[in-house]
Design a binder for these strands. Sequence first.
DNA 1: CGGTTCTTTGAGGACCATCAATACGCGTGG
DNA 2: CCACGCGTATTGATGGTCCTCAAAGAACCG
Lengths: 229, 229
Amino acid sequence: MPLERFEEVRALPLFSEISEASFSALMRGAYVQNFPPHTELVTEGDPADFLHVVASGWVELFSSWSDRETCMTLLRPYGTFILAATIKDRPYLLSARTLTKSRIIMIPSEDIRDVFDGDSVFAKSIVRELAISYRESIRHTKNIKLRTSVERLANYVVKHHAHAGGGGSFTLDVEKKKLASFLGMTPENLSRAFAALKNHGVEVSGSTILLSDPADLEAFARPYFLIDD
Amino acid sequence: MPLERFEEVRALPLFSEISEASFSALMRGAYVQNFPPHTELVTEGDPADFLHVVASGWVELFSSWSDRETCMTLLRPYGTFILAATIKDRPYLLSARTLTKSRIIMIPSEDIRDVFDGDSVFAKSIVRELAISYRESIRHTKNIKLRTSVERLANYVVKHHAHAGGGGSFTLDVEKKKLASFLGMTPENLSRAFAALKNHGVEVSGSTILLSDPADLEAFARPYFLIDD
DNA sequence: CGGTTCTTTGAGGACCATCAATACGCGTGG
DNA sequence: CCACGCGTATTGATGGTCCTCAAAGAACCG
């Protein structure tokens, strides 16, 4: 497969600094594929044959146990999954499915491990990526264990409002059902949590969120950089 | 500091395969220190100046927000913390305190990063360690989000019973207050969760747990290798 | 032995899930 | 364009899970 097709991959933090030889070795067995929405890409417990990179679209990492399911991560370009399993050559701990039409880059795990062994620059990038994901996971756990559902929602709103420019309104980029699962609650409870935030100036209309008093909301949410940033 | 004092460190998975030169470079600025119980070793938000290794004793990694606190990890020898912060040169996301008298090895983060850059064997070890911790964190989150408190306790009991040999009884190695926090509940609720497990043959006497029907308990707990192993 | 902390038990209430019913949004096909 | 069907979102009623508060008992330590 010609390397030109991987220009966008080359630009990713994980690959931008490695040698041309290493990059070629990685891309030789790689391929890019388009998936429709709601397609299960990997299933937890499966062997980690490929490192996946989201090139476009939205991907959900989720997990199931005993008829229950929970959303663990929502991935946009250019997030990777599931690096730790690839490196350790162990089964995936999470399943992945597309939420929207998505383009996914898949690199054979064996190639990742081979290049990792020979290229310390790549090894460094891998570690950086791993460390980021690890810290993200810890933040997620802290959020779940230390906050009530309304507090989690309030902080989610504050964060995404700021990320959208802080203009007093923004649009939810995933469906509420998914957001609820990510925040560790039911869809019904998310509705009620939004209702509870009316007292702090949060108006909901479909997927549009309006903040009439961002300062008040933030005072309630008490965002904390060791959880939310 | 003479290298002989670091024989035990040399044997750790993180250091056992690296060159003598790299090991010397790491140990040059390292030191070993004994701490009494209930000593706060690092505080979340602090800069990550040292990689810590538990040489003996028990260490708790915990986190706080808004007058609440939760236990995130219980570390025995020879666990490390907090590697991700060290590598990324970012603030700690977690605090650490000793639970028992403990001996802790502290290695300057800068040395870790320097050796990491020059020694691909060490880099590989770092990645292995990071991947293990990351996967552990994901399991913890799955446990919290997918199970009720009684289910979490049941699986904890099943796991530690097996780890202790499966002889029908074992001893809790941390106080119940701490266990409750780790499992995401209050101490009161842990008591009631233990009471609920009486129906499945769990007898509690102080820190001794007796299982009269391990098969029944396991059927209730439904341990799952992608969460518990 | 006294004080401190941990653990347990009880009562009450907050939080959250479940179930059920309705309303809404959206794409499809008539 | 509208009717229909399907999934999502909301709202209400109810019950279960879990936390808080309080008090008493047990274990630990000086």
